[in-house]
C-alpha cells in the first residue's frame, strides 16, 4: 500500500468518512466565493470602490489597530486602538445586557408562569413590546438617553428581556403539575417548588430562549450602534460606509458574523444540547 493510500485511510478513520465528506463539500462554495472575490480584484469587473481586494480587508484590521499603545490601552478602550475598541465595546455591551437582562427576564417569566393574574397583565404587554421590534425603540431611546452606551444597552436589554420572559413563562407552564404537588405533599414550601421544580423543569426552554435572545439581541445591537452608538462594530461599519472605506465595512461585517457564529456554535449550542440532555423531561431509552 502506498503512503498516500495509508495516509488517506488514517485521515478517514480519524475524522470519520461522513463528516470529512461534509466538511469538504461544505467548503466548496466558500472557496468558489473567495476565488470569485479575488478574480474580481484581478480582472476588475466591479471597481475596487465597490468590492475591495481581500488583502486590503486584511490590512484594514492592522491599520485600524496601528496606533495602539499596547494591551493596556486596548483594554481601557482607548480611542487609538480603534479595532479592538470597537470589538470589545460590542462584546462588552452583549455581556452587560446578558448579565442584567437574563436574570430579570427569567425571574419575571417564572413569576408569570406561576401565577395567572400576573401573566394576564404582563403577557399582553410583552406581546406588544415584542412586536415593536427592538429597532423601533432606537429613536425614543436616543431622546431619552442620548447617543452612546445607554441607548445601545437599552435596545439590547429590551430585546433580551421580553424574549427571555416568554420562554421561561412557557417553560414553567409546560412543567407537569404532578411534580409541584408532590414537592408540596412532601413538605416543601414555595421556594422549594421554584428551585426544585420550576427552574429545572423550565431549563431547556430557558436555555433555548437564551440562544434565541442572543441572536436577536446581537442583530438589534448592531442596528442600535449604527444609529445611536458612538463605538462598536455597528458604528464602525456605518461610519466607514459614510466615508466610502469599503474595506473597513467588509472587515466589520465579517467580524460581526464570525463573533456571532462562534458564540452560537461553540457556547450556546453545546449549552442548549447539554441542558436538554441533562434537564429535559423527554425520557430517552438508553
Amino acid at each position: 500500500m502506498s503512503i498516500v493510500a495509508t495516509a488517506s485511510i488514517a485521515i478517514q478513520r480519524r475524522f470519520g468518512r461522513q463528516r470529512l465528506r461534509q466538511y469538504i463539500l461544505g467548503s466548496i462554495p466558500f472557496v468558489v466565493l473567495i476565488s470569485a472575490w479575488h478574480m474580481n480584484t484581478v480582472f476588475e469587473w466591479l471597481p475596487p470602490v465597490f468590492i475591495p481586494a481581500i488583502g486590503e480587508v486584511w490590512d484594514a484590521f492592522f491599520i485600524l489597530q496601528e496606533d495602539c499603545a499596547g494591551v493596556g490601552a486596548a483594554l481601557t478602550l482607548d480611542n487609538s486602538c480603534l479595532m479592538s475598541t470597537h470589538i470589545l465595546s460590542s462584546i462588552g455591551r452583549v455581556i452587560l445586557a446578558a448579565v442584567i437582562g437574563l436574570p430579570f427576564g427569567i425571574a419575571f417569566g417564572i413569576l408569570a408562569g406561576m401565577s395567572r393574574p400576573i401573566s394576564k397583565i404582563l403577557e399582553p404587554i410583552g406581546i406588544f413590546a415584542n412586536s415593536i421590534s427592538g429597532i423601533a425603540w432606537i429613536p425614543l431611546a436616543i431622546v431619552w438617553f442620548g447617543v452612546g452606551w445607554m441607548t445601545t444597552l437599552f435596545i439590547m436589554l429590551n430585546t433580551i428581556f421580553w424574549l427571555m420572559f416568554f420562554n421561561s413563562m412557557m417553560g414553567v407552564r409546560g412543567v407537569a403539575r404532578v411534580y409541584e404537588q408532590s414537592v408540596l405533599t412532601m413538605g416543601g414550601n414555595r421556594l422549594d417548588v421554584i428551585t426544585q421544580v420550576y427552574l429545572p423543569g423550565a431549563m431547556p426552554s430557558i436555555i433555548s430562549g437564551m440562544r434565541m435572545s442572543m441572536g436577536f439581541g446581537w442583530r438589534a445591537l448592531i442596528a442600535a450602534e449604527m444609529i445611536g452608538g458612538d463605538s462598536g462594530l455597528g458604528f464602525m461599519i456605518f461610519s466607514s460606509a459614510e466615508e466610502f472605506k469599503i474595506e473597513e465595512v467588509f472587515l466589520g461585517v465579517i467580524i460581526i458574523s464570525l463573533i456571532f457564529l462562534a458564540t452560537d456554535r461553540y457556547l450556546l449550542m453545546p449549552l442548549e444540547k447539554w441542558t436538554i440532555h441533562r434537564w429535559g423531561l423527554v425520557w430517552k431509552p438508553t
Binding site: 461534509q22 462554495p29 466565493l33 448592531i222 460606509a241 466589520g252 457564529l261
Partner: peptide, 24 residues
C-alpha cells in the same frame, strides 16, 4: 451538503449588517 454551511453563514450575517455595503 455543499450549500448548507454557506447558507448557515449568510443567515447569521444579519441584513442590517449588510446595509452599509449596499449603501456604498
Amino acid at each position: 451538503d455543499m450549500f448548507y454551511p454557506m447558507m448557515n453563514f449568510f443567515q447569521s450575517v444579519s441584513g442590517i449588517a449588510i446595509f452599509p455595503i449596499v449603501v456604498v
